[in-house]
């Protein structure tokens, strides 16, 4: 059975194409990652699926029902984290979940749901005082109400710290194990690759590739850039770094060091420096972002301003 299907789905806003001829089929039970930079048309797709906006041409269906004809019936079976929502600031977290339960006419345990997403202790606080991450967790709890058959999550890890993003992925896996289908959009590759069975990459309103995460990874090898700030300029001792397996480039500029490196070798680089008594003040990484994958997948390398998107993720620490 097919969870989501679109045929030549297109949307124009005032003559500007936001989504062009999208053909997509998402099978029941899979976790599908919908990738693309900001403005690529991810939210437009989701807004069309949820009937927030109407297509210029083409059609979409969820579980066999047309999204325009039976939007409410569809949303009864779907849990959503939408894009650009605002919480009801004067209602508590619990009241939000209760509202979702009443709307879906299901009996669920709001406390258990709020605990599952990690904000059980804030259940009785007003959502107006929630942080962005807590708000995101609350909306996830609302989406999970009634064990939906499909989860549509628009940038679900926005505002979450690395731990929160990991918990979100864990819940997504649990939901799949229960039998749910998950449609998950993100502009950050690492959020998607850890959890998705298949990914579609969207660029400028067009689906440029759709593949399993494994074959996508095989087709693309990208390095991360590790930038290290040293206490003193160094001249020698860097040879050992150069010879580490996985290091493909090294640039020294005074006390700044830029190392092109594959993920697992990063710690080795740091150890190699420290073991030689080279004092490190701090470091950060620029994760290989979707943009880099894009450049490879689409063969276009003309996005210099975006190709070094710093990623706030587990690989971005600073030490003193």
């Amino acid at each position: 059975m097919v969870a989501i299907e679109t045929h030549s789905l297109s949307k124009e806003f005032d003559g500007v194409t936001a989504l062009s001829e999208l053909d997509l089929t998402i099978e029941e039970g899979e976790i599908f990652g919908y990738l693309g930079p900001n403005g690529a048309g991810k939210s437009t797709t989701i807004d069309l699926l949820l009937d927030f906006i109407r297509p210029t041409s083409g059609s979409a269906s969820i579980f066999g029902s047309d999204v325009n004809d039976d939007s409410v019936g569809i949303r009864q079976r779907v849990g959503v984290i939408p894009d650009g929502y605002t919480l009801f600031s004067r209602l508590t977290g619990r009241q939000h979940v209760q509202f979702a339960m009443e709307t879906k006419s299901v009996d669920d345990d709001p406390t258990a749901l709020l605990e599952r997403v990690g904000i059980g202790d804030a259940a009785n606080r007003r959502a107006g005082g929630y942080s962005k991450g807590m708000g995101q967790r609350l909306v996830l709890a609302m989406a999970l109400v009634g064990d939906p058959d499909l989860l549509i999550l628009d940038e679900p890890t926005t505002g979450l710290d690395p731990n929160g993003a990991r918990e979100m992925r864990q819940i997504i896996r649990e939901e799949q194990a229960r039998g749910a289908t998950v449609f998950f959009s993100s502009h950050i590759l690492e959020q998607v690759e850890a959890v998705c069975d298949r990914v579609g990459i969207l660029d400028d309103g067009r689906l440029v590739t759709i593949d399993s995460i494994d074959s996508l990874r095989k087709s693309v090898t990208v390095d991360s850039t590790l930038s290290i700030e040293l206490a003193h300029p160094v001249s020698n001792g860097l040879e050992r770094v150069r010879t580490i397996d996985g290091v493909s480039g090294l640039v020294v500029d005074g006390t700044s060091l830029l190392v092109d490196v594959e993920g697992p070798a990063m710690t080795e680089v740091l150890w190699a420096l420290e073991s030689q008594g080279i004092e490190i003040l701090g470091f950060s990484t620029h994760e290989a972002s979707l943009e880099d994958v894009f450049a490879t997948v689409t063969g276009s390398n003309n996005r210099p301003e975006e190709s070094q998107t710093p990623v706030t993720g587990p690989d971005n620490w600073v030490i003193r």
Partner: peptide
């Protein structure tokens, strides 16, 4: 405008 309507319409509300 604010997006709380989005939240309402993400649920099965007409």
């Amino acid at each position: 405008e604010s997006g709380s309507g989005t939240l309402l319409l993400s649920l099965p509300n007409h």
